[in-house]
Every structure is written in structure tokens, then in C-alpha cells.
Design a protein around this nucleic acid. Structure first.
Length: 598
RNA sequence: GGCGGCGUAGCUCAGUGGCAGAGCACGCGGCUCAUAACCGCGGGGUCCAGGGUUCGAAUCCCUGCGCCGCCA
């Protein structure tokens, strides 16, 4: 039976490049999940986009002396490239500075207001009289009251790590103009989170057995500490304007508005389908209103409360985008498979110290599937884990080259040489042959179960364990000896092994689409595995933006055991993976912490 | 200060009450179809320490030590 699966992936701030911690934490597992479900014949929409608002963007833009738009458009473009190169198959990857997103965010805000879920409260905030504007916490620097560091930020001291309020800083000054800011009263909207407390409690306990233990525990603790109203507007000139009279010059707080992107991007996706004549434009409703839809949100652990509490509260409060949509309610997150953090060579990833492996950089020098493999094998699904270049090289050489690549290569070259470049016809199968074919089906169904519950690491390990058993089968049958006396039996062994390899290809396709596509081709099949991407320039009334669109219909491979036809002709047999020299590990590691090239 | 996580073989890690596991590294052997790849056998552990519960604890509880994260 076909399922409908919504996949939301964290919206990255477009203020700097993406590193492998981002890819391993959210984008890669989401993509594996989407590819798996599409192969199963399920209806999938996977969306995300660049977060273009918030202080991190304006700070970086000020630092570089460019406009926020110039800054985010540069990184947005870079992200579009990275998704294509890593094969991250977003049905739509857009950004938050579209008219569509602005409109829907404002609508959500107004519906919350109408329904009485917003409070107005006065706050004191740092204000620069010289610049005539309010200062976000990060725009105030001063001396840290704990360690005496003179350039501590208003939200946190970077030297001692203490979390701060800007009012705690000694000798505070504005990052904009160096003057001493004053406290000034300002009025803001707050989301009345306590009003949702009971509903959130039952929502969370209903999902206890679905969510990963750490996600549930974290959420429950957060709830038990008590919910407080949270400000959802800010005094800033960059962002989505608050659509209320008297609040001119204020914008929606980025944490409130960015999660709405999941919804607005689905609306945009449906509209684009309509514009291409492939739909009615309201397909987003099935994903957001039909209670049989399961929605999954792939994020890092720092984002858990926003997706298990705050976003559900927004959805509960708004109920539906428009009363004309009928008596329907938004689908709440079904699972939030948040990952822990990936560390790098014994330390945290750090953009400012350039202690990072940059996605756009390495993907040009290495096979993207090698990263997809390694990052899944070490995925921080239940605990923080460690990326090391030495381990990366070892796993490539031992596991991808030695176990899987070598199996494919030894079997294909041997078979092609002895059977005229074609899949041989099997004769009678021995019990051992039947066992191997049965194990291949078993492997697919085990991995099916693991993937449907987001256990990617174990699913991959299961496939590799089966690969090793195929190397054993091949060794034990010794076709290179048997061929001297019994060509028919040799053909059967080749056939059985090829069928099993073909099934492994199916199991690995969500993980390693690029090399599985090459294998698909070598085995003589037509059709694509990675699938086509398209970057479109989308025009709205006043603005245009770039979006990435994946074409799922360009892939024909389905999740089912191999039915490899005898006599099918091989093509272009070549190794799937290249061995990496161990010096690579030393060289890459030596680059860490040094200023970026270029 | 509060909450939480982690501590298992030389390394990276799996293991939620029933004889301590995998991969790599190391030692020995087999094979030669294959990218010196593949396959088999072996050595190697005070499961951080101490206490408790239990017929039985790496696993559950308490305390301590060490590392890490979140919040205040």
C-alpha cells in the first residue's frame, strides 16, 4: 500500500559554506530516506531552503560590507551546487526571501493573533541613539563579567563560553557605531506557548515510542521545565515585516518564521507543478491536511525543541492556512530523527577557525559516494561521533574498494570473459545457490525495515555484511577452477552471484546513487538512478529567486529483488571505486585550522 | 548551579538482565577470478572505580572520578 511521506530538512543559514557536519547531520539521511521511499513507490515531497534572515546574516553582511541579499544569494547558489553534487534530491529547495514565504508567514502570524495565541509585551532592549536603531544581542559587545574578555558578544562570551544578556556586559558598545547603547522600551509580540502546554504534553507522549530516545527525553525535559511566552518579533529592518499597524520597522523573529518554510515550500512546490502542467497546484494540501500523511523532520539536535514543541504549537494554533480549506487541521510532525553532532579529528567543527571539511570543496576532489558511505557509516544517530581522514581513507580502501567494489569487479570481469560479455543462463540450482538468493531477499527486507524507521547506519552495515557473505560464496565455489571442467556449473555460480549483486545494488541505491547508477549501466540496464536536477529562476510579482528542483520521475529503479535477465549484455565494466593513497589522510588533516585558500 | 549524555580490545565503535562482540591493526595459513583485493584460523578486555538490587549486572539503582553537551 502506498504511503504519503513529507520530508522537511533543516533550513541552513546562508551566511557561510556548508561543512560535512551539516551533511551528515540532516541532508544525507533525509536524502537516503526520500530515495528509499520513492523506490518503494510512495508519494514523497522533500523540501527545504536557505534561511536568509536573522542576525547571523546581517552580521556577516556588515562584516563583508555587502547587503544581506548579496550575501545570502551567494551562499544560496553555492548550496544549490552542493545538493546537486552530493545528489541531495530535494523536490524543492528554495529560500525564505520569496514573496510566497513572506505571505504565508504573515498569514500564519495573523491567524495566531486572531485566535488569541499572541500576547503583546513591553521589553527593554539595547538601542543605539547614534544609528537610531535597536541592537540585536549580537550587535552589542563589551567586557565579559566572568572572564574579563573585552570583546564578548551580547549573547555569549566567545572566550569563556558564558551565556550573557547584553545588559550584563561591562562597558557595552554598539558594534555598528562604537557608541554606548542605552536601554529603551520596545513592544513585541509573544507566542503564548503555555496555552499549548496540555496539548503538547499529550502530543509528545503519543510519540514516545516513535521518536528516538534522546529526542523524546530532551523534549520531555524541556516541557517539564515549564513553557514561557516567547518573543516572535524583533526590531530589525531585515526580515519579514510584522503585518500589524503600529509595528512598522519590526520583523518576524527568524526562529518563528523559518520553520514555516516547510509549509510555504510545499505550497511553492505544488504551484510549480501546476505551472508546468503537471498538477492542479493544491497537491500541498494532501501533505499538510491528510491525516494519513507521515511527516519527518531531519535536523541536528540543537533544533529539537523547535521541531517537537514550537513548530507543533504554531501548527496547532493556526490549524489551517485558510478557512476556505475546510474543516481540516495541519499534520503534526510524526518523527523528528534528530542527529547528534559530528566532530572532526578530536574537536568540534568550527567555521571561524576553519576546523572543517567543506562540502563544496571535497566533493570536487573525491567521489561523492565515498562521503555518502563514510558519513552514513559513522552517522551520529545516537551519540556524537568522529570524522577522521585516516578512517575515511581506510573505510574507502577496505570496505568500498575491498569488499564491494572488488566483488563487483571480480565477478563481472570473470563472467564477461567466460560468457561472451553476457549474463549466463543458470542450470539447476544447488541448495547453497538457493540459500544465497534467499538471503538476498532477506537482506532487502531487513534493510527495508531499518530504513523505514530511520536506522540508516545499521541498514548500511547490513548491506555490507551481505556483500562480505557474497565474497565468501564466490571463494567457496571457486568458479575460476570449476570453469576448467564444468562450464555450465560455472555459469550458474556467476548467475547466482550477479543476481545477488543486483539486489545489493537496489539496497545501496539510496545510499550510493552515483556508483549504483554506474553498476546499473554495467549490468546492461537502461535508466537512471541518481535522477535529474534542474535549477530554475522563479519569478514572482516583484522578485525572482533561484530554486533547485529534483525530477523523481527520471528514476526507474524500484525497491524489489533482482530479476536480472539471462543474456543481458554487460557494458563498460570498470572499478566502481578508486583506492586512496594513505598520504591523502595526512595531507587533508594538515589543512585543518589554516586559513581557507582562495 | 540544574538537567542530560558518554566512559567496552591497541584504534573506531556495537551491545537495555543470561557464556564479553564487530571492523581495522597485529600473528599464522589458504586462494590466485579480482583494484596486493578475497577467504580461514589465532592472540588480545579489571566492560572507568566503589557499593547496592538480583539466582545472574557491561546492562538496573546509588556514590565518586574523567570527558562532553544543553539550560540558568
Amino acid at each position: 500500500m502506498s504511503e504519503r511521506i513529507f520530508i522537511g530538512v533543516a533550513w541552513p543559514y546562508a551566511n557561510g559554506p556548508l561543512h560535512l557536519g551539516h551533511i551528515a547531520g540532516a541532508y544525507l539521511p533525509a536524502d537516503i530516506f526520500a530515495r528509499y521511499h520513492r523506490m518503494k513507490g510512495n508519494e514523497v515531497v522533500m523540501v527545504s531552503g536557505s534561511d536568509t534572515h536573522g542576525a547571523p546574516i546581517t552580521l556577516q553582511a556588515d562584516k563583508e560590507g555587502v547587503s544581506p541579499r548579496e550575501l545570502f544569494e551567494r551562499y544560496h547558489k553555492l548550496f544549490l551546487q552542493v545538493w546537486q553534487q552530493f545528489g541531495i534530491s530535494f523536490d524543492l529547495y528554495t529560500h525564505t526571501d520569496t514573496e510566497n514565504h513572506h505571505r504565508i508567514s504573515q498569514k500564519m502570524f495573523l491567524r495566531l493573533k486572531e485566535r488569541g495565541y499572541l500576547l503583546v509585551q513591553k521589553q527593554l532592549q539595547m538601542y543605539s541613539e547614534a544609528s537610531q536603531r535597536f541592537l540585536p544581542d549580537r550587535y552589542v559587545i563589551g567586557t565579559c563579567p566572568h572572564c574579563g574578555y573585552e570583546r564578548a558578544r551580547g549573547d555569549q562570551c566567545e572566550r569563556c563560553g558564558s551565556l550573557l544578556e547584553p545588559t550584563q556586559l561591562l562597558n557595552p558598545r554598539s558594534l555598528l557605531d562604537g557608541t554606548t547603547p542605552v536601554l529603551k522600551e520596545t513592544e513585541h509580540f509573544f507566542l503564548d506557548l503555555p496555552a499549548f502546554e496540555e496539548r503538547l504534553k499529550s502530543y509528545v507522549s503519543e510519540h514516545e515510542n516513535i521518536w528516538r530516545p534522546n529526542v523524546h527525553r530532551f523534549t520531555r525535559n524541556y516541557l517539564e521545565q515549564g513553557l514561557h511566552p516567547r518573543p516572535i518579533t524583533r526590531d530589525l529592518d531585515w526580515g519579514i515585516p510584522v503585518p500589524v499597524e503600529g509595528f512598522e520597522g519590526k520583523v518576524l523573529y527568524v526562529w518563528f518564521e523559518a520553520v514555516i518554510g516547510y509549509l510555504s515550500a510545499t505550497v511553492e512546490w505544488a504551484r510549480l507543478k501546476r505551472d508546468e502542467g503537471r498538477g492542479m497546484g493544491d497537491e500541498w494540501k494532501e501533505f499538510w491536511y491528510d491525516e494519513t500523511t507521515k511527516s519527518f523532520y531531519f535536523i541536528g539536535k540543537d533544533n529539537i525543541p523547535f521541531h517537537t514543541l514550537i513548530w507543533p504549537a504554531e501548527l496547532m494554533g493556526v490549524e489551517r492556512l485558510d478557512d476556505a480549506d475546510g474543516n481540516v487541521k495541519f499534520v503534526l510532525p510524526y518523527d523528528v530523527p534528530a542527529n547528534e553532532f559530528l566532530n572532526l579529528e578530536g574537536d568540534k567543527f568550527s567555521t571561524s577557525r576553519n576546523w572543517a571539511v567543506w562540502a563544496h570543496d571535497v566533493v570536487q576532489r573525491y567521489n561523492p559516494d565515498t562521503f555518502r558511505y563514510y558519513l552514513t557509516a559513522i552517522a551520529p544517530e545516537t551519540a556524537d561521533t568522529e570524522f577522521t581522514w585516516a578512517d575515511f581513507v581506510r573505510r574507502n580502501n577496505d570496505e568500498l574498494v575491498g569488499w564491494w567494489g572488488n566483488l563487483v569487479h571480480r565477478v563481472l570481469t570473470f563472467t564477461a570473459r567466460n560468457f561472451d560479455g553476457c549474463v549466463p543462463h543458470p542450470t539447476e540450482l544447488t541448495d547453497r545457490d538457493k540459500e544465497v538468493l534467499q538471503q538476498a531477499e532477506q537482506m532487502l527486507s531487513t534493510i527495508d525495515n531499518l530504513l523505514s524507521t530511520c536506522k540508516f547506519k545499521r541498514a548500511l552495515a547490513e548491506a555490507m555484511e551481505f556483500v562480505r557473505s557474497l565474497n565468501r560464496y564466490w571463494d567457496e565455489q571457486q568458479p575460476w577452477q570449476v570453469v576448467k571442467t564444468d562450464k555450465q556449473r560455472t555459469g550458474t555460480v556467476c548467475y547466482v552471484t550477479l543476481r545477488a549483486i543486483d539486489s545489493v545494488k537496489v539496497a545501496l541505491a539510496p545510499f550510493l546513487p552515483f556508483t549504483c547508477e554506474r553498476l546499473h549501466h554495467m549490468l546492461g540496464y537502461e535508466g537512471k538512478v541518481v535522477g535529474d536536477f534542474e535549477v530554475q529562476e522563479i519569478s514572482e510579482t516583484e522578485r525572482t529567486h533561484l530554486a533547485l528542483i529534483y525530477k523523481p520521475e527520471s528514476v526507474s529503479l524500484r525497491w524489489q529483488p533482482s530479476e536480472l535477465p539471462p543474456r543481458q549484455r554487460f557494458r563498460d565494466i570498470a572499478p566502481l571505486f578508486a583506492k586512496l593513497d594513505e598520504k591523502v589522510a595526512e595531507e587533508e588533516k594538515a589543512k585543518l585550522g589554516k586559513p581557507m585558500e582562495g
